[in-house]
Design a protein around this nucleic acid. Sequence first.
DNA 1: CCTAGAACCTGCGAGC
DNA 2: TGCTCGCAGGTTCTAG
Length: 286
Amino acid sequence: MPELPEVEVVRRGLERWVAHRTVAEAEVLHPRAVRRHIAGADDFTHRLKGHRIGTPSRRGKYLWLPLEDTQQSVLAHLGMSGQLLVQPHEAPDEKHLRIRVRFADTLKTELRFVDQRTFGGLSLHDNTPDGLPDVIAHIARDPLDPLFDDEAFHQALRRKRSTIKRALLDQSLISGVGNIYADEALWRARLHYERPTANFTRPRTTELLGHVRDVMNAALAVGGTSFDSLYVNVNGESGYFDRSLDAYGREGLPCKRCGTPMRRRPWMNRSSYFCPQCQRAPRVSS
DNA sequence: CCTAGAACCTGCGAGC
DNA sequence: TGCTCGCAGGTTCTAG
């Protein structure tokens, strides 16, 4: 499930294999993959054709490829199961191949967007003055961004009348954190996912952000997480971070700190994993 | 304005 | 064997 570290690994792969190549032709095989491109698939392919791709950028889970001679970028979101693959022309089409981009060079490889569950997609957008696709201007900086504002995040937590995991997943407060790394960071910080954010102290926020950064950097160091083969990076290599997860997916297994069996709770149509001993539930729970 | 929860989508595995 | 159902989950929309 691509969260920030996985998306960053993809971005690096695109920088290595796709940047500075000129689009010869794009092909949309499934209209849902370009649903965020309001003008439609034909407009999408026409606008890409003939343009040279610049250096890929990323914010949170979004990444984008600037088109060098325009003020526009191709925005990509992998959703749950999206992959961006660089494949030889002769490689057989993947079962869930949605978009193919061919290039005007002799490298004999093409870019493919493959996505089983179709939550992801590509679209073309105008850039804001600071080079960000306009439709993601509301997405907060991510915790690995040097310009992320820890103090502003803390004040936002204080203003919220919500709980901490909800806040971690709110991409307008902090981007790039998904269900897996939220559970991992909360376990490291010994915080229950339903802790109210309104009374967070500055040290508590600072410590939590430190754990978010630590777990993301650890995942980045091994090339992202993968545990169901849906995610592979741009070169088709799986990550190995799943072997290092401390909380996510460990229902019934002993807590790596205290040995207490870990629990899973249904939460927001998904799951939260936590240690009932290390991560005590808040006194007043809804 | 704010927050909570549902909807979107497909494939897989468990259970019957 | 073949069916149903729960689950995976990031983002966006709707209800309250």
